[in-house]
């Protein structure tokens, strides 16, 4: 008797708790979405505002114009900064991907003296903050008379990413079965042939991810660029954009917003296109901060 009265009660409470769970879940996800979208939305809206405001705010009223974009191109060095950053990014990407792919392949496929120790070294050296090198870079730049020279910054970008990316690249190569190159070797293929024709084509997804990271690095770096580039015409986007809002008395918020959109949009598109690839790259490569 007692069990029959409890059973329907239990059933009903299961149903209501499911409903509560559903409501709670959606509420949580929607609130989180609002928190994420709020700052992004006000940046986007500000970019299309007329005139200049000193602060961001979510405001759908008022006129929408492209005036900020026009001012950005006509009155500021924005296009120049974009060109500088693109050039630095493309050079960084090409060299770093080449170097890292070669090294990662060597660490994955060959067993040589010093291999394990140097791998540990790679893993640890990537933990040294860039800050540790700041003063040294500065003095070296003075010595080479290359302060304010984009090439100097580019070399640092290329070299700085090597340890970690080699490690990730190696992790990916490790997931490509070795039987493939072994059988090619038996068939008489040389080192280069195995690398170019057998393993490389299979590693393309990871190479694409590496390229994306290397490319995005100069877009996202603020510290080094700020420290080593001085004149406005040599600046990269991050440093240049900061000049719009670094002066508390003269904040060019609409300009900043317009400039930000033109950076964030292409990067977001690249990010979402390659997203699947680099998530798997991350998990197979093991570690990334």
């Amino acid at each position: 008797m007692a069990t029959t009265t409890i059973k329907p009660k239990k059933y009903r409470s299961k149903k209501t708790s499911d409903l509560i769970n559903k409501i709670a879940t959606y509420t949580f996800m929607i609130i989180l979405s609002i928190i994420i979208l709020y700052p992004i939305a006000i940046t986007v809206l500000s970019a299309f505002k007329a005139g200049n405001t000193t602060a961001f705010a979510l405001d759908f009223g008022g006129q929408f114009t492209l005036a900020s974009f026009e001012r950005l191109f006509a009155e500021s060095d924005y296009l120049r900064w974009y060109g500088n950053t693109l050039l630095i990014a493309v050079i960084t990407m090409s060299f770093q991907v080449a170097v890292v792919t070669l090294a990662g392949y060597a660490y994955s496929r060959y067993r040589f003296t010093g291999r394990k120790n140097s791998l540990t070294f790679f893993l640890l050296i990537q933990m040294v903050p860039t800050m540790a090198a700041l003063t040294a870079f500065f003095v070296l730049a003075l010595l080479l008379k290359s302060l304010d020279q984009p090439w100097f910054l580019t070399v640092i970008y290329i070299g700085g990413g090597i340890p970690m990316n080699t490690w990730l690249m190696k992790g990916y190569f490790d997931t490509i079965p070795r039987d493939l190159d072994e059988s090619a070797r038996i068939d008489g293929a040389g080192h280069l042939r195995i690398f170019w024709q057998i393993v490389m084509p299979l590693a393309k997804p990871m190479i694409a991810v590496q390229a994306l990271w290397a490319f995005m690095g100069p877009f996202g770096d603020f510290m080094l660029a700020k420290f080593l580039l001085r004149s406005p015409e040599n600046m990269t986007l991050a440093v240049g954009l900061q000049t719009f809002i670094s002066n508390p008395r003269d904040q060019q918020v609409t300009l900043f917003a317009a400039g930000s959109i033109l950076i964030a949009l292409p990067i977001c598109i690249l990010f979402f296109l390659l997203q699947k690839n680099f998530v798997s790259g991350l998990t197979s490569g093991g570690t990334k901060g």
Binding site: L32, S33, I36, L37, P39, I40, I42, T43, F56, M216, F219, G220, F222, A238, L241, Q242, I245, F256, S260, I263, A264, I267, C268, F271, F272, Q275
Partner: peptide, 15 residues
């Protein structure tokens, strides 16, 4: 949920 990662951090921090 991925947007905060996708947008370059320096932009969001300045915002």
């Amino acid at each position: 949920f991925l947007l905060p990662w996708a947008v370059p951090a320096f932009i969001t921090i300045m915002t």
